[in-house]
Structure formats: structure tokens, C-alpha cells
């Protein structure tokens, strides 16, 4: 599969602050690619750089395998940070300007207005719109001309629960149509629900990037339970098992984390039995992106603290 966007070692300094540090990843065609990170992690900075509103301090990026140019941006529907429109013009007139800049005709405007349910208010000035309506107009503007690639930065910002659900459905619909979507969010469940790929950023550092299933797969772990008093023995036993990454007690049970792709629950059960422990409880768990995210950022914080010391 070819890559729509390729980012190589992009670094960005704001004065002495390093907002992005050597970030590299590829966005495959047809993927819904989530860029995940807490506020201030560099998501918007990264998207700003690939849309040429910010200048990278180092590194390169390419769209559609070519060096960046304004012609490529015309083919991408982008919602970056906040909706930016002329306050004194109506919603429709604003869309006309956006369509003209993208080099498209005006015939698509009624469709996108209907899509975000702004047809009735199309002649009202942008300044009279509510926050949610502004956001919806921005989404409409992205859809102009039915682009094959979309970039959304916090698309559900300012929307009410219905608007959030509708926007997510829109994104899923776009994904079903085979469009490539780059979605930045600090809302983990948003990313988890719609994304096929994910990159996790923290303080400008790329912690992990790849297929959502791959990222989550090495998160598979097993919770085991055994008779009273045997927990310590079980822990010791598991620690010696090849492929085990981490063993830790959790309530009455023991959680065992494996290296990627080596876990076999049947094998595990037999191993314990043969070594004199009968399991009373065995549960395969898949971690949510949220716990993965917390773990990654915690590890990062610890190692950061260690370096500081």
C-alpha cells in the first residue's frame, strides 16, 4: 500500500522549547490514522507543519510521495485547530471562498451544507453562529469537492453529544468510502473507535506508531488466579517462563504480560499445572488504548525522571 503522507525526523523548536523531536511515521492510503496525545503534546504543531502554516526546524515530509506544494493542499480537506472564517460573511459566502481557493466550483456547496445541517442558516453571518455551528461549517469546508484525504484536528471540539456522535459517524462513513483520514485527538476513545492506525505523541516525542491491532496486540495479557497462599509461588514460577515481560499482582490475581506473539493460554495452563499449581482463574484481557496510553506516558515520565537524576 502506498503512503499518503510520509513524515521524516520532523523537529520543531519554539524558541528553546522543543515542541517536536525527530518525529517520523507514514500514513498509508485508506487508513484512518489517529495522532494521539495529551494537550500540548505537539499534535497541532505537527499538522500545522504538514499544512505549511508552521515551518519545521528540521526534518522533511512529503504528500503523495512528492515534495510539498500548495497544489497538494487543494486536494486535502483540512480542519486545523479552530474554524477560521470571515466573520462578516455568511456561511455560504465563506464556503465559496474556500471552494475558489481549492480550485473547485460552487456546485458542491449545497451538498456539504446539507451534510452538516446548516442549509437553513447558510445566509447568516459567520459571527452569529454558535461554536458547534462554526465547527460544523469547518467540517463542511473540508468536504468540499469530496477530497480523498482529510485532516481533522480535534474535530469534535465544541460539539454537543449529538454533534459528536454525528461527526464520528461521518468519519466512519468517510473511512468506509476508502478515504484516508488523519485524525488528531486527545480523546482516546474517539481514536480507538474509528482509527485503523495510531501514533502516540507525548511532549513532542513519538512513543509508538503503527496499526491499531499491532499496537494493542502486544498489550494482550492474562489474569491468573490460584489457591490462597500460592500467589507468591505462582509469581515466582511465571517470572521464570520464557517470553514473559512482566508479572504483577492485581487484587486477588496475578497479571502476566507477554512479549508480542508468544502467548498461548493452553500452554500457560499446562505449565502451571505441571509445576504444581492449579489455576482457579484464567482470563485473557485486551487492554484499551487508554491504559496503553497511560502506561506509555508513565514509562516515559519515569525514564525522563531517571535521566534528570
Amino acid at each position: 500500500m502506498s503512503n499518503i503522507l510520509s513524515i521524516q525526523s520532523v523537529t520543531k523548536f519554539y524558541g528553546k522549547i522543543r515542541a517536536l523531536n525527530q518525529v517520523s511515521f507514514e500514513v498509508p492510503a485508506g487508513s484512518v490514522f489517529g495522532v494521539l496525545g495529551p494537550n500540548g503534546s505537539g499534535k497541532t504543531t505537527l499538522l500545522g507543519i504538514v499544512m505549511d502554516v508552521l515551518k519545521a526546524s528540521g526534518g522533511r515530509y512529503s504528500w503523495f510521495g512528492e515534495p510539498p506544494s500548495e497544489k497538494q493542499r487543494q486536494k486535502i480537506g483540512t480542519l486545523l485547530e479552530t474554524p477560521n472564517f470571515y466573520h462578516y460573511l455568511s456561511g455560504e459566502r465563506n464556503l465559496r471562498i474556500a471552494a475558489a481557493i481549492k480550485g473547485r466550483g460552487t456546485e458542491d456547496i449545497p451538498r456539504v451544507l446539507e451534510m452538516v445541517k446548516l442549509t437553513e442558516r447558510k445566509d447568516s453571518k459567520f459571527s452569529s453562529y454558535s461554536l458547534g455551528m462554526k465547527q460544523r461549517l469547518a467540517i463542511a469546508s473540508c468536504m468540499l469537492g469530496d477530497p480523498q484525504v482529510l485532516v481533522f484536528d480535534e474535530p469534535t471540539n465544541g460539539l454537543d453529544p449529538v454533534g459528536i456522535a454525528e461527526t464520528r459517524e461521518t468519519i466512519r462513513q468517510l473511512a468506509r468510502e476508502g478515504k484516508t483520514i488523519l485524525l488528531a485527538s486527545h480523546l482516546l476513545d474517539e481514536v480507538e473507535k474509528v482509527c485503523t492506525h495510531v501514533a502516540i505523541l507525548q511532549r513532542g516525542q513519538l512513543l509508538m506508531a503503527g496499526d491499531v491491532n499491532e499496537v494493542l496486540m502486544n498489550e494482550d495479557f492474562v489474569e491468573l488466579g490460584t489457591g490462597e497462599g500460592l500467589q507468591a509461588k505462582l509469581q515466582g514460577l511465571l517470572a521464570g517462563l520464557p517470553g514473559v515481560r512482566q508479572v504483577k499482582p492485581y487484587d486477588q490475581h496475578v497479571q502476566v504480560f507477554f512479549e508480542k506473539g508468544v502467548m498461548d493460554t493452553g500452554e500457560l495452563n499446562r505449565y502451571c499445572f505441571e509445576n504444581g499449581i492449579t489455576l482457579t482463574y484464567l482470563q485473557l484481557r485486551k487492554r484499551s488504548l487508554e491504559s496503553k496510553f497511560m502506561e506509555l506516558t508513565e514509562e516515559k515520565n519515569k525514564s525522563g525522571a531517571a535521566v534528570a537524576r
Binding site: E70, T82, N84, F85, K102
Partner: peptide, 18 residues
């Protein structure tokens, strides 16, 4: 006005060169 409404950014994002 372009800076106040940040439309200078939007114009670039939508496909104008600087």
C-alpha cells in the same frame, strides 16, 4: 482582518501558497 480571523492560515491550508 486576515490575522484576526486567522484566515491567512486557512487560505494557505486550503491551497494558496504563501
Amino acid at each position: 482582518n486576515e490575522f484576526t480571523y486567522k484566515t491567512h492560515r486557512q487560505n494557505i491550508i486550503d491551497g494558496w501558497s504563501r
